[in-house]
């Protein structure tokens, strides 16, 4: 039998879970389509980008549609997850000011709630790819870069949450940075070779997306070094975000 967790730890987990689940419920509360929205928004983006890239810009890459679909599912997660850091603390200001709950739990709950969405969307994606016969043999390995993506997004979420407490214009700046991030990541365009691709490798998000697609769609196994660096960078960003946040969280309730 594994040792049962201490009551304190169990409670922290329970607080985080309740916050995440209620957050998830509230997101789709009163919307006509409910949860389907979370799948519909990447699908609508898919339609727009496919139209523009395929017919306006004339991209002829084979399998561009699934390439785009995988990219958008990952990107939507990163966007929602990092943005939740900005809104989570402000939304729970009342709680943080009257109950001694670590602020990190509130941010973590926001991350968890977007992770639920990612998990469901990925399951649907894999199902669709499987039915279409487009799933590669290496597909199960895609869990690793998805985990890296989650670590990177969570770390970013903590950093953005800290900035949001300190600076009023953090949300404006973050929406611009997100735009930049979107175009500096091969979400909608294809960049596999050449110096530009090498440059994009500096972006951890680009590395994650490459790995997810290689494993999920292209049956391609890159060098272990590429995988190792990606894991290390994503884990590093996660540690940095959580570490900085924990060092500063005592002052957060009064700053809200």
């Amino acid at each position: 039998m594994p040792p049962s967790p201490s009551p304190r730890r169990l409670l922290r987990w329970e607080v985080m879970r309740e916050l995440a689940v209620s957050d998830f419920r509230l997101k789709y509360y009163d919307s006509a389509l409910g949860y389907a929205w979370s799948m519909l928004s990447p699908l609508l983006m898919l339609a727009v980008f496919y139209f523009v890239f395929r017919f306006v810009l004339g991209v002829t890459t084979p399998g561009y549609l699934v390439y785009l679909l995988v990219g958008l599912v990952c990107w939507t997660f990163f966007q929602d997850c990092s943005y939740s850091g900005l809104t989570a603390l402000a939304g729970k200001a009342g709680v943080l000011k009257s109950i001694h709950v670590p602020a990190a739990l509130v941010v973590a709950a926001g991350v968890l709630s977007t992770l639920i969405t990612l998990a469901i969307n990925t399951a649907v994606l894999v199902l669709v790819l499987g039915l279409a016969g487009r799933l590669s043999r290496l597909a199960p390995l895609a869990l690793l870069p998805l985990l890296c993506l989650a670590l990177f997004a969570a770390g970013t979420s903590f950093l953005v949450a800290l900035a949001g407490v300190q600076f009023r214009d953090a949300s404006l700046i973050w929406s611009v940075l997100l735009q930049a991030c979107f175009w500096l990541t091969p979400v909608v365009y294809v960049a596999n070779t050449g110096p530009v691709a090498e440059l994009l490798y500096l972006n951890p998000l680009a590395r994650c997306l490459h790995l997810v697609r290689w494993f999920l769609l292209y049956d391609y196994f890159p060098t272990l070094r590429f995988i190792g660096v990606t894991v290390a960078v994503c884990a590093g960003v996660f540690a940095l975000g959580v570490g900085l946040f924990l060092r500063r969280q005592a002052g957060i309730p009064e700053a809200l």
Partner: peptide, 24 residues
């Protein structure tokens, strides 16, 4: 504090309770 009008009474009991340190 932490009550949310859009959630059901049951969900609110769970949310508020664990926030106050009552095991789920």
């Amino acid at each position: 504090v932490g009550f949310n009008g859009a959630l059901t009474v049951r969900d609110n009991v769970f949310l508020y309770g664990v926030l106050l340190g009552v095991p789920r």
